[in-house]
Design a protein around this nucleic acid. Structure first.
Length: 641
RNA sequence: GCCGAUGUAGCUCAGCGGUAGAGCACUUCCUUGGUAAGGAAGAGGUCAUGGGUUCAAGUCCCAUCAUUGGCUCCA
């Protein structure tokens, strides 16, 4: 007999070799029917796998993240089975579960494949699912695995097996399909009741640009048809929040082929919004001891040779601007830091001057790959809310923490609660892509890790995500469609001060090297606005929104009074407009609602007679009437919250 | 940059070999209307661009550009 410990701490005895499915059965048949897999001593196992020793187990169902992952991973196998049945000779790469759904990278050889083929595959998958084929686990030797896939002619699987240790290799089969797989899987394909292939894309084998590109098919499956319907509905909702769609509808920004791809044009309303963000941050920075600086949009090529950016990115950037002077070259600035370093160098600095905090809303230009451009989130010209802090080594951690506070303040003011702080460190293996001494990197990485810990940030560590000159703390936020974007960033840099030979005189009267912190709470205004749009679905906080209210006269007769009301309200802090079109009030209200204008002031016979306005709030409806002055105070109170 | 998809009126889209369409927006006129679309008329397009096939090309083929979903990249 073996002792099985359940999550509630209770211990039950079972025969040796009992499966977690049987354990579930002993609890309830209903549970057993829903068990997809089980966590056995911290590892996820098939629910049909015999347990031979004492163990603590957790039964996994659709309600568990791991249960879903198992379900989707098995769905990837089901899709592979369908693909093999439909297109014999297809070779398979990898087919993992992802956050929502799964994908499989496959090689169709010469066969052209597009989303038009989805229907056929979905149908085949459902057909195979109905067979309720069991997923059978089979441990094999490395030799046998290699023989199997050599016979099958699947070089990708062989490539994978090459790196696996003998004795750890398992194959899984369901129906006529066998795959190299660590598992685990759901009991049988019959659990999969709803299938939707979502998109098709190219993906390099093993993520390596120099290797062959496979076809990646994404899909998602559910144990109930209704869950698929819910999912599709959710996707529709998310699309409504897409900043590219809302940016057009709300007339915030635009792009023009003539201006150039990836170069955003801010329309009046978008510019008003952006201006408010800038003012907001500027005030916060003033309070925190930042000093505004301004630098030009271009810089001499030598500046970037000094900084190291030219060597690293020169070939893939906008190419140098020539002048009538032979051999003279300037670059559009891709970064503000070299300029700021030169500002630091304008006079001798004392340890008493530090930290120095130079802030600039600096517009930079980077030649992003054409396939990378995406709305406002990935562009070729953008404005960073940049600042560079020059401090003594003993001030680094404190300054870093102050920046964290500023970022949190900014996020808080704008309602971003679901972010993660990503500690971006060097690649563990490939250190050649970074510049600077081992010692300085150690110092910088330690400073970030400690500061993040002391601030209790929800942190994830990512290796290989550091900038080439130093580690970063990146604040990551998801967009409406679940894609992750980096917003704020804080970076510790020991290298640029060295390259620019920055110095200060210490209390010992000797020269010392300052440490630089690069930081941008928004990251870029473009990306920030994009994520903000999706976050609030275009319903901006009152203080930010381009138009806070609109005056709607019921007919021409009340125009003069309406105009007077507007005049009495508009000032530098609050902004509204008036709808003088020859339309009925219902129409004016509808249009204002569609434009997501927070407040509507309706003015007719009654209001004019009583000297009041009728107030209607976007998305909520009629709020009754009040004096214009009262509304003004209400607005001001709401804005200053 | 790579793989796939898309490009028709300001916007959203239909048309897929035989004389360019709809809804909304826009202009003019009628209407002066009380909390999410009042009515009528009008104007608006070398069907992304350049080649090719055809008696005939938004419609089929090729290339280019742009957009888009991913991949790679992201100072």
């Amino acid at each position: 007999m073996i002792n099985i410990t359940l999550p509630d701490g209770s211990v039950k005895q079972f025969e040796k070799g009992t499966t977690s499915f049987q354990i579930a059965q002993s609890i309830s048949e209903g549970l057993a029917r829903n068990v997809l897999a089980a966590e056995v001593n911290g590892q996820i196992w098939d629910s049909s796998r015999p347990i031979e020793t004492d163990a603590s187990i957790r039964l996994l169902t659709w309600n568990d993240t791991e249960g879903k992952a198992t379900f989707w991973h098995s769905s990837a196998h089901l899709m592979a089975e369908a693909l093999e049945a439909l297109y014999p000779g297809t070779k398979f790469g990898i087919g993992p579960a992802i956050e929502t759904g799964f994908y499989y990278d496959v090689d169709f050889g010469d066969r052209e494949f597009s989303s038009d083929d989805f229907k056929q595959i979905e149908d085949k998958m459902l057909e195979l699912a109905r067979k309720k084929s069991e997923f059978l686990r089979k441990p094999v030797s490395k030799q046998d695995a290699q023989t199997y896939f050599t016979d099958k002619g699947d070089e990708y699987k062989l490539d994978l097996i090459k790196d696996l240790a003998d004795g750890s290799i398992t194959l899984y089969s369901q129906g006529d399909f066998t795959d190299l797989c660590r598992g685990p899987h759901i009991p049988n394909t019959g659990f999969i009741k709803a299938v939707k292939l979502t998109n098709v894309a190219g993906a390099y084998w093993r993520g390596d640009e120099s290797r062959k590109q496979l076809t990646r098919i994404y899909g998602v499956t559910f144990p109930k048809q209704s869950e698929l319907a819910d999912y599709l509905k959710m996707i529709e909702e998310a699309k409504k929040r897409d900043h590219r769609k809302l940016g057009k509808e709300l007339e915030l920004f635009a792009f023009s082929e003539r201006v150039g791809m990836g170069l955003p044009l801010w329309l009046p309303k978008g510019a008003a919004l952006r201006e408010r963000l800038v003012n907001f941050l500027q005030r916060a920075q003033m309070k925190s001891g930042y000093e505004p600086v301004i630098t030009p949009h271009i810089g001499h090529k030598n500046l970037y040779i000094t900084s190291g950016h030219y060597e690293k990115y020169g070939a893939d950037s906008f190419q140098p601007i020539k002048t009538p002077q032979e051999g003279e070259e300037f670059l559009l600035k891709p970064m503000n830091c070299p300029h700021h370093c030169e500002i630091y160098r304008t006079k001798p600095r004392s340890y008493k001057d530090l930290p120095l905090r130079f802030a600039e809303f600096g517009t930079v230009y980077r030649y992003e790959q054409s396939g990378e451009l995406h709305g406002l989130t990935r562009v070729r010209g953008f404005t960073q809310d940049d600042a560079h802090l020059f401090c003594r080594p003993d001030q680094v951690k404190d300054e870093f923490k102050k920046v964290v506070d500023l970022v949190l303040y900014v996020f808080g003011a704008l309602g971003f609660e679901n972010f993660t702080a990503q500690v971006s460190l060097r690649d563990k293996e490939n250190r050649a892509k970074y510049i600077g001494s081992e010692e300085n990197w150690e110092l910088a990485e330690t400073a970030i890790i400690e500061a993040a810990a002391e601030k209790n940030l929800p942190t994830v560590v990512e290796y290989g995500e550091a900038a080439f000159y130093g580690p970063k703390l990146d604040f990551m936020v998801k967009d409406a469609l679940g894609r992750k974007w980096q917003l704020g960033t804080i970076q510790v840099d020991y290298n640029l001060p060295e390259r620019f030979e920055l110095e200060y005189t210490g209390s010992d009267n000797a020269k010392h090297r300052p440490v630089m912190i690069h930081r941008a709470p928004f990251g870029s205004l473009e990306r920030f606005v994009a994520v903000l749009i999706e976050h609030c679905a275009g319903n901006f906080p009152l203080w930010l929104t381009p138009e806070q209210f609109i005056v709607l006269p019921i007919s021409e007769k009340y125009e003069d009074y309406a105009k007077k009301v507007l005049e009495s309200l508009n000032n530098s802090d609050i902004r509204g407009l008036i709808d003088l079109r020859d339309e009925k009030i219902g129409r004016k209200i509808r249009d204002a609602e569609v434009k997501k204008i927070p407040y509507m002031l309706i003015i007719g016979e009654k209001e004019m007679a009583e000297g009041v306005v009728s107030l209607r709030k976007h998305g909520e409806g009629d709020l009754g009437s009040m004096k214009a002055e009262e509304f003004k105070n209400k607005l001001i109170t709401e804005i200053t919250v």
